[in-house]
């Protein structure tokens, strides 16, 4: 098997992005709250571009119903999502630093779990959980930016998924309308578009604002 050393990996990324961008991404720590369709795919994108450290949190295990959109494999069914995500990300970049937290996030533990993250991606499934995370970060973590997603169910309408800066510390991704409440299915294509928007907004922040 071909091996890629840490130094070779660095050279590859610098060749792609240039040294200044490489250094900013490498120095960054990003939080991901929830490792479902959004979180598992946001994580892949951030690791591929070279974000140096992730803090990932979820309480769930991989189930068959996840495979239609989440970045897991049949062999991982039953596995803890945090461990399965770490396994998958290390296959992409063995040198990425990942802190995995297997916990159900709540207003009490969110500030401690994401204390080292200037940016957190909200990647939950339930609307109430999204509300909880955004409210907790904006209310209790005065310097943290949250990049959240709402409105990504169904298929088609790719260009209705947008990235919108709501205020200094809140960026929203999605069409803000099409949720599972409407009986729409969650499908890989549209979920991955939204995850791509989230990861892209985070990369833009890391390069331009930090």
């Amino acid at each position: 098997m071909i091996k890629l050393s840490c130094e070779q990996f660095k050279e590859m990324l610098i060749e792609r992005h240039g040294e200044a961008v490489y250094e900013k991404l490498k120095a960054a720590t990003v939080g991901i709250a929830g490792l479902g369709g959004l979180g598992s795919n946001v994580a892949v994108a951030l690791v591929r571009v070279g974000v140096g450290k992730l803090v990932i949190a979820d309480f769930d295990i991989v189930e068959p119903s996840n495979l239609n959109r989440q970045n897991y494999f049949v062999a991982q069914l039953g596995a803890d999502k945090v461990n399965a995500t770490i396994e998958n990300l290390k296959k992409i970049n063995p040198y990425v630093e990942i802190k995995g937290v297997s916990v159900k996030l709540n207003p009490e533990n969110v500030p401690a779990v994401f204390k080292d993250c200037p940016i957190v991606a909200e990647c939950f499934d339930k609307a109430q959980s999204k509300q909880m995370l955004i409210e907790t970060i904006l209310g209790s973590m005065k310097k943290t930016i949250v990049v959240a997603a709402s409105g990504l169910a169904g298929y088609g309408k790719s260009n209705e998924i947008r990235t919108k800066k709501i205020s200094e510390r809140l960026i929203m991704v999605g069409d803000s309308e099409n949720g599972i409440e409407k009986g729409l299915s969650l499908m890989a294509c549209r979920v991955i578009i939204a995850a791509g928007h989230q990861a892209n907004a985070i990369v833009e922040l890391l390069i331009n604002s930090f």
Binding site: S150, G151, M172, G179, E181
Partner: peptide
């Protein structure tokens, strides 16, 4: 600003 959240992720 009122951000209404819908489910799905």
């Amino acid at each position: 600003e009122l951000i209404r959240l819908v489910g799905g992720g």
